[in-house]
Structure formats: structure tokens, C-alpha cells
Write a protein that binds this DNA or RNA. Structure first.
Length: 221
DNA sequence: TCCCAGGTGTCTC
DNA sequence: GAGACACATGGG
């Protein structure tokens, strides 16, 4: 069992990194598109594909849904799995266009369970992708469990990192207040920490998750 | 050259 | 239900 509670972990990350107010996209539609494109892919590759879509005027659910799969796949090539993601993105875009007037933030008007079930019924939208859209595009209070979150869980021995997705999500949601802004920022803190600190400096002596962390105790990096 | 990156669906046992 | 595998590019 970790000596740190989840709230304490969040407070340390927040203190060290500052509030993130985060999902690296401009609009709810871009967030939903990014949630598909980032599946098992580094975000740097997603940004290239997103730039292609933006340049082609395709950051729009109806246009994406109507585009031939092979044409869309060409735009998505830099993000990897481009044939697969073209099919998945068209399926999500069709759902958004047909049922939400192209605006994923309209999921906020539905009860969370209903909105999640609707998303999970879209081919290629699994738990993590659905929850990313629900939290970041629609503002529902649901915690996103991704590879970064599992690594944090493993490192701090918060739970079994191989536990089923919903078990880990329940763990976070039980121990934290039901607050979309908190879940949004906590997940962002985990990602930023993993990418900017621990991945580049695995032996970082100023890691805010260390008990003797200089950053968390008010020292300097 | 090899490993890895913010998953999901399908198939097999 | 669990595990293996396919899906693909490009940076380090």
C-alpha cells in the first residue's frame, strides 16, 4: 500500500507543475478526434495528423463522416494504424453528426451512464476513448485510466496496475471528490509528469512523488 | 536497428 | 474470461 493517498499525489503534482487546464485541443470536436487518433500512439504523431485534417478543413463531424475511408486514411497516415483509425474516426464522426449535431459537448446533456453507453456502442470507441471524450469534451466527472495512469498506479503501488479498467476508475472516483475539473487536471498532471519529468529524467531527484521531494516541500529544482 | 507510444476488436482455448 | 495477436508510423 502506498504511503500517499490519491489526493496527496495530486496535490504534489499540482504544486510542482501548476494547474494544467488541459486536453491538447481547441474544440470539443478536436478533442473527440484526438481521442481516436491517440490510441496506442504518441501525441506528437497525433498532432501531425490533426494538422493535416485542419489544413483540409476536416475538423468537422459531418465532413469526416462523408469522406471516403481511403482519403481520410491518407490524412491520418502520420498517426499510425491509419486504415484502422480512418474507419473508427468515420464511425465516431457519423455518431456525432447524426445524434449530437456534430457537437460532442452535447453529451453533457445526457446522464453519464447513458452518454457512456452510447459512445461505447460506436465501433472503435472503447472505455478509455469514451471516458476521454466524456471528461474533456463534455465535462462529465469520469476519471480516465490510460497507460500513464497505470504506470503511476504501479509506481506508487496504489492498486494492481493490471486490474480491469473499470476497477481502477472506481478506485480513483471513490477516493476523490466527484469533480470533473479535478479529474481533468489530475489526469493532465499524470501525463505531463510522465512525459516531461519521469520519462526524460527517470532518476529525477526532484520528482514531486518522492517522499523527500524538494519541489513538493517548497524547494527548487 | 530496435523499442516504444495516452487502445480496440477479434480470435482461440 | 483470459491471453495472443493485428493494426503502422516515426522519434530516440
Amino acid at each position: 500500500m502506498s504511503p500517499l493517498g490519491l489526493r496527496q499525489v495530486y496535490d504534489r503534482l499540482l504544486h510542482a507543475q501548476g494547474p494544467q487546464g488541459w486536453w491538447p485541443a481547441e474544440t470539443p470536436v478536436e478533442m473527440a478526434i484526438g481521442a481516436i487518433l491517440t490510441q496506442n500512439t504518441a501525441w506528437t504523431r497525433v498532432e501531425v495528423a490533426m494538422a493535416n485534417l485542419r489544413g483540409a478543413g476536416l475538423l468537422d463531424a459531418r465532413r469526416l463522416a462523408d469522406l471516403p475511408t481511403d482519403v481520410l486514411a491518407k490524412h491520418l497516415r502520420p498517426s499510425g494504424y491509419f486504415n484502422l483509425k480512418a474507419r473508427r474516426l468515420k464511425a465516431l464522426a457519423a455518431f456525432l453528426a447524426d445524434e449530437l449535431d456534430g457537437d460532442p459537448s452535447r453529451l453533457a446533456r445526457m446522464p453519464l451512464d447513458q452518454a457512456r453507453a452510447r459512445l461505447l456502442a460506436v465501433p472503435g470507441v472503447g472505455r478509455e476513448t469514451a471516458d476521454s471524450i466524456l471528461l474533456y469534451a463534455a465535462g462529465h466527472p469520469i476519471f480516465v485510466i490510460d497507460a500513464y495512469t497505470r504506470r503511476l498506479v504501479e509506481r506508487l503501488r496504489l492498486a494492481d496496475p493490471t486490474a480491469p479498467y473499470d476497477d481502477l476508475r472506481d478506485r480513483f472516483e471513490r477516493e476523490l471528490p466527484r469533480d470533473a475539473a479535478l479529474y481533468n487536471d489530475f489526469h493532465a498532471q499524470i501525463v505531463i509528469h510522465a512525459k516531461d519529468r519521469c520519462r526524460k529524467k527517470p532518476r529525477c531527484q526532484a520528482c514531486p512523488l518522492r517522499p523527500d521531494c524538494a519541489v513538493a516541500s517548497g524547494g527548487t529544482e
